[in-house]
Design a protein around this nucleic acid. Structure first.
Lengths: 221, 221
DNA sequence: GCCATTCTTACGGTTTCCCGTAAAGCAATA
DNA sequence: TATTGCTTTACGGGAAACCGTAAGAATGGC
């Protein structure tokens, strides 16, 4: 089992509960922090002291407060940590459900487990820790079907730009000007219209308002 | 201090942490459930057994799963509970930040405390429990400025209906038919257009897409 | 009952958006 | 260079949304 565990989680109540779960594994010395930057510092220090952590449990979204942070959230934290301590096992404990985001965590960020904050998340967390200890990866059961569901439209950064502009009140006829100003191609009005039509079609939507609602729901914009 | 406490919270990890906080007050027999319907049942039973609860700690949003529920969420639970047990103190523990929603909880639903899930929520929760025990109300510090801010526009249920329809892909020209079918007045297309124009104007928006994005952000739809 | 006020609806003109088609641009290949 | 295939743009007709105005219905006070 793990010897040194670090918890990066801004919600005190959740942090407490994670520590309690670790205690069930006999891990009573888990360290914790409410800030990403501090988490990175502690990991840096642990390497320097030659007593490296062997498990990081982190949330994805950290709320801003008076303390200015370099790292915006869990994803950035994981990226930074992987640079200095690639062997460290990472378990993400978050409410995020967007399959694209979770998929990228495993693929791009090379995390070892993802546990979704949900009804039986404490049991789930326990299971995930057991899996990681055996050098296996873990993904909450409830998400496995979602992650498979490849039919969800893959929004390119171009798509996200378009929908963001709409959600900010830019009129379609004014979008070409914006795109040219930002050197984004294609910039023709027809291309914009066509791209929006493709998005609507593939999601079987009738109106752009639906696209905006959908992207808000899934945190795409 | 409280003798019988019920926790309605669908996230196991959060529920565990709330129980731990209660233990700090010497409350070791707190009951808990992951479902709204079950919470109502337990309160009903406690009245029947003449051993009523004196504190309910509840979340607002409960995720759906295989178990079909009558009560959609915390608000509905509180409404139902107040019917059968008006003296029961209610503490809401949620991540919701929309001032309009929280305001209505205190005013319409007559709750006694609102604790926001955030960085120091465990301490916050402790403070709230102390306040309620002294028959005072409590609101997380971080929300007090927000709640004052009488946010820009008061969305009526009519407004919410319109924006929901748009976000679901209903075309404006088809909205009058829907409104008539559901006996919602006014139902004229002009009234719909006018109402949308008023919303856009008062929020200084140019497009309906912005309304949808705004309402999604603030959990209005 | 009558009038005044407000709310609701109907209607037309204008703008914006939608969508199909065709032309223009561009890159790779022979 | 010419050909081919793909992407991007231009254009135009038609649908939807927007907006002002005015007629009609409902409400409340006198």
């Amino acid at each position: 089992m793990f010897k040194r565990v670090l918890i990066a989680e801004d919600h005190e109540s959740t942090s407490i509960s994670v520590r309690k779960t670790l205690e069930d594994f006999g891990i009573t010395n888990a360290e914790f922090t409410y800030y990403c930057d501090e988490a990175l510092m502690q990991i840096r220090k642990s390497l320097h002291d030659d007593q490296p952590f062997d498990l990081l449990i982190t949330d994805l979204s950290f709320e801003e407060d008076h303390r200015k942070q370099q790292l915006a959230g869990g994803v950035e934290l994981i990226e930074a940590v992987k640079q200095i301590h690639p062997q460290l096992k990472v378990l993400v404990f978050s409410a995020e459900t967007n399959p694209a985001v979770i998929d990228s965590l495993f693929k791009a960020s090379q995390i070892n487990a993802y546990v979704r904050k949900a009804r039986h998340d404490a049991k789930d967390l326990r299971k995930a820790i057991e899996y990681i200890a055996q050098h296996k990866t873990y993904l909450s059961e409830s998400l496995k079907p979602a992650i498979k569901q490849k039919n969800a439209f893959e929004f390119s950064s171009y798509d996200v730009t378009l929908i963001s502009l709409l959600s900010q009140g830019t009129m379609q006829k004014d979008i070409p000007a914006y795109l040219q100003q930002h050197n984004i191609k294609p910039s023709g009005l027809s291309s914009v219209e066509k791209r929006l039509a493709i998005m609507r079609d593939s999601l079987e939507f009738a109106k752009n308002e639906q696209l905006v609602a959908y992207c808000k729901d899934y945190g795409i914009i």
